[in-house]
C-alpha cells in the first residue's frame, strides 16, 4: 500500500491500529519506504470473504476474493481514515520462501498502475501484463512506434476520446454495451468512433486497429506524462 497525500504521513502505530481493526489481529504491517507499507494478512481472510464460514474457497475464486479485500481496504482507508492511497494485492505466498519477490512485484504493480491507469487506485499484478511488457520497451523504440502509428497524437489528449475508448475496450469492443455504460446513444458512439477513424485512420471496430489503438493509448500515457 502506498499513501499519496501531500502533507500528512500517518504514524505506524495509528495505521497498524486501523488495519488490525479492519483485517484482524493476525496481521503484520511492515514499513518499506516513506509512505509505503507491506501488509501481510492471514489466508483465513480469504475464507472469511465467503458467504458461509465453513465454505472452502476454490482456487479460481482466490483472485476475486483478493480483489474485493483490496478494494475494501482502499475504501476503508478513504472513508474512515480520510486519505488517498494506492493498493496492490498479490496471490498468497509463504513469506519465508518468496517475500522479496512478492514485494518487488507489488511495488512494480503499483508503479505500473499509477503510470498507465491514472484514475485507478487498486491494482492487481495479474492485470498489468501488457503494461509491464510496454514499460520494458526502450524509449526510442516506443517513440518510433508512436510516430509511425499516429500523426494525430493530440487525439489522446481529448478527454472525451480517451473516456470513450477506455469504455469501448473495457466492454470488449461491444458498441451497444459501451453506449449503455457511457449513457450515450449508440449513434453518438458510432459517430465518435467514425470521427476517430477519419482523423487517425484507425477503426477500433476492427481487431487489428483496436490492438494498435490500445497500445497507442497506453504508450501515450507513458511518453506524454513525464
Amino acid at each position: 500500500m502506498s499513501e499519496q497525500a501531500e502533507n500528512r504521513e500517518p504514524s505506524y502505530v495509528e495505521l497498524e491500529k486501523v488495519l488490525r481493526s479492519y483485517l484482524s489481529d493476525e496481521m503484520l504491517l511492515i514499513p518499506l519506504r516513506e509512505r509505503e507499507w507491506l501488509i501481510l494478512g492471514t489466508d483465513r481472510l480469504l475464507a472469511e470473504v465467503e458467504t458461509n464460514e465453513g465454505d472452502m474457497i476454490e482456487r479460481g475464486e482466490t483472485k476475486e476474493a483478493l480483489v474485493s479485500l483490496a478494494t475494501g481496504l482502499h475504501q476503508m482507508i478513504t472513508e474512515e481514515w480520510g486519505g488517498d492511497c494506492h493498493v496492490a494485492v498479490g496471490e498468497p505466498i509463504i513469506p519465508t520462501e518468496s517475500l522479496v519477490y512478492a514485494v518487488a512485484t507489488l511495488r512494480e504493480t503499483i508503479n505500473l498502475g499509477r503510470k498507465f491507469h491514472m484514475g485507478m487506485q487498486v491494482h492487481m499484478p495479474w492485470l498489468v501484463h501488457l503494461e509491464r511488457l510496454l514499460s520494458g520497451i526502450p524509449e526510442p523504440v516506443r517513440s518510433r512506434f508512436m510516430d509511425e502509428m499516429s500523426g494525430r497524437q493530440d487525439l489522446f489528449t481529448d478527454p472525451e476520446t480517451v473516456s470513450t475508448l477506455d469504455a469501448f475496450f473495457a466492454m470488449d469492443c461491444n458498441v451497444s454495451e459501451t453506449a449503455k455504460r457511457l449513457f450515450i446513444h449508440r449513434n453518438t458512439l458510432l459517430y465518435r468512433l467514425d470521427k476517430l477513424k477519419q482523423e487517425a485512420g484507425l477503426d477500433v471496430r476492427s481487431f487489428n486497429d483496436a490492438i494498435l489503438v490500445r497500445l497507442l493509448m497506453l504508450l501515450y500515457k507513458v511518453t506524454k506524462r513525464k
Binding site: 483485517l23 475494501g72 475504501q75 481514515w81
Partner: peptide
Amino acid sequence: APKDRDIAMVFQSYALYPH
C-alpha cells in the same frame, strides 16, 4: 483532515468490506 470534516462519502464502487 477528511476524517475530521464530519462528512460521509458514498462512492461509485460501493466496495463493502468483504470479510
